[in-house]
Simulated scan of single mutants.
Amino acid sequence: MATEPVETITNWCEFGEYRAYILMAIARRAHNDDLTHRGEVVYRRVLCDVDDVQDQYDDLRALVARHDYTFRIYLSVNARNTLDAYFDFREEMNGWIHDLVAGDDHAIPKLGKVDSYWKSALHSPEARDDRCFQFDVDDVTDAEIDAFTDALDSQTTVLLTRETPNGYHVLTEPFDYTAWEPPVAYDDLDTDGQLFVEEIEAPGSLA
């Protein structure tokens, strides 16, 4: 049983009323030569309580094991507001019914994929319950990432620094970054990012 990824997830998540997180496993074209962009594999699970974490993580690992691909597991940085997502999703489903009544049968397949559409609604930026920043900093030395986080400390609260296959994810409270001059160039700033949890290499690559 893998413990470090589960600890990373549980340590970050702050569950509460109407708060959930999205845990996902993604096999991308960039990490799998025989995949096309349209053929990328994505699995998502909703975490509503700390007791969900181990079971949902194990479920994702079982799904990943069915493929000969390299997967990366990510966690939504910001909690999702399930109540806001519900009202938005209900409006979306009302649109499906309106289309069906009007004779548009394109909505019929959607009724068989409600679970997938619900996860998409929950994952939408409109459903986020937090406003954390995620800095993606790649190809840096230990000294450079230390300088980067020290500089952030003078601007805001650094919540987490997590190593990734290419560098680091640095999570902070929101602040006016437009006036900030970082000592090290960062690759991306995401206001609704996905925290790297784990890379699972394709079984064939381990031979």
Rank of each mutant, 00 (worst) to 15 (best):
M1S: 11
M1R: 08
A2D: 14
A2L: 14
E4L: 10
E4Q: 14
V6E: 05
E7A: 12
T8A: 08
T10C: 07
N11C: 04
N11V: 00
N11L: 01
E14Q: 09
G16A: 11
G16N: 04
Y18D: 11
A20T: 07
M24H: 03
M24V: 08
A25I: 01
I26Q: 05
A27C: 09
R28A: 11
R29F: 10
H31T: 10
N32V: 09
N32Y: 08
L35N: 09
T36S: 15
T36F: 06
H37K: 15
G39F: 06
V41C: 04
V41D: 01
Y43T: 00
Y43W: 12
Y43L: 01
R44G: 00
R45D: 00
R45C: 00
R45T: 02
L47H: 01
L47E: 02
C48I: 00
C48K: 13
D49Y: 12
D51T: 11
D52Q: 06
V53S: 00
Q54G: 04
Q54Y: 05
Q56H: 04
Y57R: 01
D58V: 00
D59E: 14
D59P: 01
R61L: 01
A62R: 03
A65D: 14
D68T: 04
D68P: 05
Y69A: 02
Y69D: 00
Y69K: 09
T70A: 04
F71Q: 00
S76P: 08
S76V: 07
V77L: 07
R80S: 12
T82R: 01
D84N: 03
D84H: 06
A85E: 04
Y86K: 05
Y86E: 03
R90D: 09
R90P: 01
E91W: 06
E92H: 08
M93E: 09
I97W: 06
L100F: 03
D105V: 12
D105M: 12
H106I: 06
H106R: 14
A107W: 06
I108T: 12
I108Y: 12
K110A: 15
K110L: 15
L111W: 07
K113D: 15
D115H: 10
S120M: 14
H123S: 14
S124A: 15
E126V: 11
R131D: 15
R131L: 10
R131G: 12
D136Q: 13
D138E: 12
D138N: 09
D142Q: 12
E144P: 04
E144F: 02
F148Q: 11
T149G: 05
A151D: 14
A151M: 11
L152S: 05
D153F: 07
Q155D: 04
Q155C: 11
T156R: 02
T157A: 12
L160N: 13
L160Y: 02
R162W: 00
R162F: 03
E163D: 10
P165A: 10
P165F: 09
Y168S: 03
H169L: 11
P174V: 05
F175V: 07
F175A: 09
Y177R: 02
A179E: 13
E181D: 15
E181W: 06
P182M: 08
V184M: 10
Y186P: 05
Y186F: 15
Y186W: 14
D187W: 06
D188H: 13
D188K: 14
L189Y: 05
T191S: 09
T191L: 15
D192A: 14
G193E: 03
Q194C: 03
V197C: 02
E198C: 02
A202I: 05
P203Q: 06
P203L: 03
S205M: 02
L206Q: 13
A207W: 08
